[in-house]
């Protein structure tokens, strides 16, 4: 089954990270990707820009509305994701445990037939 690992990170900590900390975080993610590849589980993944760089498109009453930023103010925000292949939820949980981020939401990918 396919799962998305949604990584929630602290907005402030991410913004204030030093060059050194950024490099270390990238290294840890490199290690995690290597583990996923070794297990044939890596399908993809990206880091996302912060909420400050986001634009939300909300379509209502015939016209598209463009708004800056997300609507919900949260300390944690979606900072990136991985797409993985796992035998079942237990394996997805096991892999997510190795992910170097404190909050990881595991979502099954809905597979549409045909």
């Amino acid at each position: 089954m396919k799962y998305a690992l949604l990584l929630y990170v602290d907005a402030k900590a991410r913004q204030e990270a030093t060059e050194e900390e950024r490099r270390e975080a990238l290294e840890r993610h490199g290690g995690f990707i290597a583990l996923l590849k070794e297990r044939d589980a890596f399908l993809g993944g990206e880091e996302l820009g912060g909420p400050g760089e986001a634009v939300t498109l909300r379509k209502g009453s015939g016209q598209a509305l463009r708004t800056d930023g997300p609507f919900v103010e949260t300390v944690e925000h979606l900072g990136g994701f991985y797409l993985i292949e796992a035998r079942d939820l237990d394996e997805a949980i096991e892999l997510a445990r190795a992910c170097p981020v404190d909050i990881v939401e595991i979502r099954p990918v809905v597979e549409h037939q045909g």
């Binding site: 089954m1 079942d88 237990d90 099954p108």
Partner: peptide, 14 residues
């Protein structure tokens, strides 16, 4: 079924 919770008795440390 949708989240892929397995039909299994966990093993080892689990």
């Amino acid at each position: 079924s949708q989240a892929g919770i397995p039909y299994r008795v966990p093993e080892g440390r689990e």
